[in-house]
Design a protein around this nucleic acid. Sequence first.
DNA 1: CTATTTGAACTGACCGGTCAGTTTAATTAG
DNA 2: CTAATTAAACTGACCGGTCAGTTCAAATAG
Lengths: 229, 229
Amino acid sequence: MTSDPPGAGKGRTAEPLPTQGPAAAKVLRPARTTATRQKLFDASMELIGERGAANVTVDEIATAAGVSKGTVYYNFGSKSELVAQLLRHGVDILKERLLTPGAGPAKDPLLAMEDMIGQAMDFMAQYPSFARLWVSENWRTPSEWQGTFTVLRSELLAVIAHAVENVAKAYPVDPTVSRGSLETAIFGACFVVGLDRQTYNPERTRDQSVAAIMAIMRGYVLRPHAAQE
Amino acid sequence: MTSDPPGAGKGRTAEPLPTQGPAAAKVLRPARTTATRQKLFDASMELIGERGAANVTVDEIATAAGVSKGTVYYNFGSKSELVAQLLRHGVDILKERLLTPGAGPAKDPLLAMEDMIGQAMDFMAQYPSFARLWVSENWRTPSEWQGTFTVLRSELLAVIAHAVENVAKAYPVDPTVSRGSLETAIFGACFVVGLDRQTYNPERTRDQSVAAIMAIMRGYVLRPHAAQE
DNA sequence: CTATTTGAACTGACCGGTCAGTTTAATTAG
DNA sequence: CTAATTAAACTGACCGGTCAGTTCAAATAG
């Protein structure tokens, strides 16, 4: 019997799954398990990002991670749950990056914004598979991960919103532009520009991409100084 | 015997597809076939857009179109080819919309740009499934539709590039911003903002979305007049 | 005008293969 | 000892693609 699956969500068998809190003991889990989960994250990020969740089999993921299929089910309970936790994992990394201050502590909000978008570009370059997974599975109407996306999306937008807020406090901005729509546009542009660079235009530099996206902010601010210092 | 499939790509045979210009003999095709293809386009756009190509069966598409599975293969040869032609079909519609002049013939390039983005928003609202299909399947690395996407993407970008070009001729623009990256950012923002409105923020208006995307252009232009005429 | 023919369009049962998920007994690591 | 992992077999459903047969509208014949 597969003793007591840690994070398993089980299938149809309505067994009680006694004292197993959802995401309780992540840190105190044995080192071996943590390593296994990391290998599975890496492998599935790569495979699912490239081909889409539906086009990758659990067997493939297990093999790529150098692990048996049973281990996948022992650790995650289902393919669907693996993907959900994969999304959460990626967003945690991205959020941490976005919140990393560029260099100095107190900085001009526009420069901070530029740093943040640069961080986003770096993330897209480092984890292109995550970006692909995100845009591929987001926006699906009755998606298995509908709830997951809603939560994660708002977490990321909150980070952007905070940066935009700081700009709006330091500069006169166009009041006719809806803040939410603007944030969405920035959010989307980061993903798409990052992915496009990866897929169709590898010759474009990181800074070119940042500058293009920053045009949104320069257009939002009524008159920074001269746009060309 | 299944006589001669019209548009069927057949499986492996590298068929020349003789005198088939993009939209050449569409009218002289028997009315029944044209109607059937339209029904199949409608049904698959809806289903594939919502759930992704891999999560929709040919049987489902056929049933939704009120047609038998065999008819799908008679008309398209394969599921893959159906999707490819579906993409082409959608892009043709979008391109036509984008090229539709707003109202007056000779217009201010920035206003023309605003019209164009408005057209894009309307398209996303009318065919959200196409937008979902596009962002879901684009950027996949060894995609079956890699070639299709490359062609279609450049066609759409050319339309945007032309509009941006007109702005650059009429206004002083920031020379440090890469034109290509800028176009990509606009392109991506249109899709993402349109989709986000559909999925997460239905309360946002079309004009809010257009304004947010237009911020990119206002940030690209060095100094239009006062940003708030 | 009616009967017959023709072939493109369409049908739907069927087949071979695939895949998610389950189970179990044995093995390994902490 | 116990939790984690393995390997392998198994199931039950599902799916893309095929194909022999049917329908139907238009052309042709009488």
